[in-house]
Amino acid sequence: MSTLSRRQVVGALSGAAAGLALAGAATAATAATDAPGPKKAGGHEHPAGPAPFDEVFEGRRIQGLPARGSRAAHAHHGSGYRVLIDGRELHLMHRTDGTWTSAVNHYETFRTPYEAARTAVTSLQGADLVPLPTA
């Protein structure tokens, strides 16, 4: 029966950890590519954008819809998408990696505006959404 040295054990564990890290990074990259929302084709966003939604979640009405008019150019940093909680706008930002973040949960990222809206409702714990001041 052969015994393994400490060096061999550490080497094997380091190799396994590196392999798991690479597999995790590949899975994350695939998930970001498969995430719902605007798809890039030839460097341009697909015009369809995220799917609209309208539902009551935890007693609050959440709506997601394409932005229209002059607000579409400025609102949401060019995302062209609006989310409302009880009729008040939730400020959303579309990140370059395809994920979304909100003013309520600005340290978290979400695959869709729908996920951002539901998490914002949970985080508000019944409080009213206060609009951000405009410049």
Rank of each mutant, 00 (worst) to 15 (best):
A117D: 06
V83C: 06
R71H: 08
T112N: 00
R71Q: 12
T112R: 00
G80M: 00
L90P: 09
E108W: 10
R118E: 10
V83L: 04
I85V: 11
A72Y: 03
R111C: 14
G69L: 00
E89F: 11
R82L: 15
R111L: 14
S102F: 05
L90E: 07
A73D: 07
G87F: 04
G98D: 02
E89N: 08
G80L: 02
G78N: 05
T101M: 13
L92P: 02
D86G: 00
H74M: 09
G98H: 01
N105E: 09
V104T: 04
A72F: 05
G78R: 01
E89Q: 09
R118N: 10
A103F: 13
P113Q: 04
T101Y: 11
I85L: 06
T96C: 10
I85W: 07
S79T: 03
L84Q: 07
S102N: 04
Y81R: 00
Y114E: 10
S102T: 05
F110G: 03
D97L: 00
T101H: 14
G87M: 05
Y107E: 12
F110L: 05
G69K: 02
A73L: 06
R82Y: 15
E108Q: 11
S102W: 03
D97F: 02
L92S: 05
A103N: 09
P113H: 04
A117V: 09
T101E: 12
A73I: 01
A117T: 06
A103I: 09
A116P: 01
M93F: 15
S79M: 13
L84P: 06
S79L: 12
D86P: 00
R88G: 13
R71N: 03
I85N: 06
R82W: 15
G80W: 01
H94S: 09
R111E: 14
A75E: 12
L92D: 01
H76G: 11
V104G: 03
V104W: 01
P113G: 03
T96V: 08
M93T: 08
G98V: 00
G69A: 06
W100P: 09
P113K: 01
W100S: 08
A73F: 10
G87Y: 01
E115F: 10
R88P: 15
A72C: 04
R95E: 14
E89S: 07
A72M: 04
D97N: 07
I85R: 04
D86H: 05
V83R: 01
D86E: 00
